[in-house]
Amino acid sequence: MDFTARRVVSSPGRETVDDGGAWLGTTAAVWHYPAEASEPGPSAASQAPARRLLLIHGFRGDHHGMALIVDALPEFEVFVPDLPGFGATPPLQRATSDAADSLPGKHGPAEQGPSKQGPGKQGPAKHTLDAYAGFVEALAEALELGAGDVLVGHSFGSIIVAAHAAQTNPAAHAAQTNPAAPPQEPRRWAGLGLLAPISNDIFTGRLLPGAAAVDLYYRASQWLPERLAQALLRSPLAQAVTNASMIVTREPDQVAYIRDQHRQHFSGYADPHTLLQAYWASSRHTVTEFADRLELPVLLAPGAKDQLSTPAGQRRLRAMIPRAHTEVLCETGHLLHYEKPAQAARALRRFISTLD
């Protein structure tokens, strides 16, 4: 499913706004999984329509990472996009206000996207957290998702969806919107699911040594010529280090599957520059920045052995969110979407069943 996403993503007072371009566009690739038909019965006609889900993947992933969880939720209609700059979705492009009216709406092939704009009216956008949150809003608008539906994010996706939900709740929206701008109706989701939520600043405490090494890895890619940068970022050694440090399961079939997924999709980014921007957005923010503005029901589903968060950080995050519910997934870490997809799906299903 392809369409061009358009969204004003600048937020007054934030340092992470786009570099002067108010309109962002890309030809977004979205995978649509229809709900499986339920068994017919006397009460089928009286049942409320199943909630639809929008799932947002993590850093250096794409929609493939959510596949096992989608498979475990057959009763729901699910949408899973590739984030801008990853998988089949090109990086974001910005357009000046003069070009805003010329940006296309829904369309088909990727080559019909905003890259056809005239010279001087468009250029690369900064892939900030605000930009990714705006991308989610554009998706929700295009897919007509809203008050009855559920937004879910894994890892970096948990930060993105938290930022999006915080920006679109009534109180936060009123506080952040320019008073001179016309009022906008905020989007209301039925609930927010955060899988392996990022609760800790990774540049502090026991997470600092690993975070510093990863930071150097991505910085080095910008100091090298393009060919060498690509070799570094796509290095089998980098994948091996990721596997060794992140895989918790000892089931041979699962280990082989995760390694193969990383081999196929770990390097599915558009270019080193976009990848670095996404890394900065993922590593310089946490869900805690938005926790007290998440006024909707929130599921926190961390892995008990999560390598990127601490138990204390998860407890602190839980205490900050007014309507949070925590369900810890045992015997897994940050890669719970590969190691415990059925358990993650059950946690989501139980959470959704409690929503009004």
Rank of each mutant, 00 (worst) to 15 (best):
S245R: 13
Q117S: 10
G210E: 06
L151V: 07
L296Y: 05
R234E: 13
H325T: 15
F3Y: 11
A22E: 13
L329M: 08
L299F: 07
N243L: 15
E137D: 11
A44P: 02
C330G: 10
N200C: 12
A67K: 11
R187H: 11
L53R: 02
L92S: 02
K126T: 12
G120L: 10
E226S: 10
E295T: 15
G87H: 03
P297R: 06
A212Q: 14
Y217C: 07
H107I: 08
W23K: 01
H127V: 07
S11N: 08
D260F: 03
A147L: 04
L276R: 15
Q93A: 12
S155M: 07
E39D: 12
L224K: 09
V70Y: 01
P302T: 01
E327W: 00
E185K: 15
E331W: 06
H154D: 05
P124G: 12
A133L: 08
P225Q: 10
E39C: 08
L224N: 08
S283C: 01
S245G: 11
G120H: 10
E75M: 12
P311M: 06
A213Q: 14
A324E: 09
G58W: 04
W23C: 09
S283Y: 01
S46T: 14
D101F: 14
A240N: 13
E295C: 06
D253A: 14
G113E: 05
P209N: 09
A147V: 08
A110M: 13
V136P: 01
A37G: 05
H64I: 03
A256F: 02
A238P: 07
D71F: 03
E15D: 12
G85T: 06
D19I: 05
R14Q: 10
F135T: 10
Q277V: 04
Y33E: 07
G146T: 05
G13C: 09
T332Q: 04
A172P: 00
E295R: 09
E339F: 04
Q47V: 10
P34I: 09
S309G: 13
P183S: 04
T288A: 15
Q314T: 11
Q307V: 13
E226I: 06
G333L: 03
R315G: 11
